[in-house]
């Protein structure tokens, strides 16, 4: 048995396809959806906890890739360079998981790393480029 957290990026054309259904049915994998949404670029994004037999897992991943789904392991991390962040807040409405929020008292922008799914939407829109991807 293996169990992994992964981020799936579905291109626009696949958003309405029953891909996860097939993954479950044909590869006997169990899943737990942690997050799912459509980005402004109309890419589908899904964070899954996927578990099943090791060989099935590998085949399931192959199947996803053959459909055109991009798979990203959740080990990748987005961190904030505190020296660079100006606490402007322009990232706040962009973050899909409310990992970036304004503290109403200090008006500083808080970054909750635990909520972050490393979707990287904030990385290029941060004006001083304070959100950094670390591997």
């Amino acid at each position: 048995m293996v169990s992994r957290r992964i981020v799936l990026h579905f291109p626009h054309r696949l958003v309405n396809q029953p891909i996860i259904y097939k993954l479950v049915k044909e590869y006997d994998l169990q899943f737990n959806i942690l997050k799912a949404f459509v980005t402004p670029q109309e890419e589908g994004l899904m964070v899954l906890e996927l578990s099943g037999k090791k060989e099935n897992f590998a085949k399931g991943m192959e199947y996803l890739e053959s459909c055109g789904v991009r798979i990203q392991p959740l080990s990748q991390d987005v961190v904030r360079n505190e020296d660079k962040c100006t606490n402007c807040g322009v990232c706040v409405p962009i973050c899909p998981t409310e990992a970036l929020v304004v503290d109403p008292q200090t008006r500083k922008v808080l970054f909750h790393n635990k909520k972050c799914i490393a979707c990287e939407l904030c990385v290029k829109i941060c004006p001083p480029r304070a959100m950094e991807v670390s591997f």
């Binding site: 100006t86 402007c88 807040g89 706040v92 304004v102 004006p127």
Partner: peptide, 21 residues
């Protein structure tokens, strides 16, 4: 600054480009 405003009946999240802090 409350984080959302209503435009055309829709709740819209706000972001500031100017750092208040």
């Amino acid at each position: 600054k409350s984080g959302k405003i209503i435009i055309q009946g829709k709740e819209v999240p706000t972001g500031n480009l100017s750092s208040y802090s």
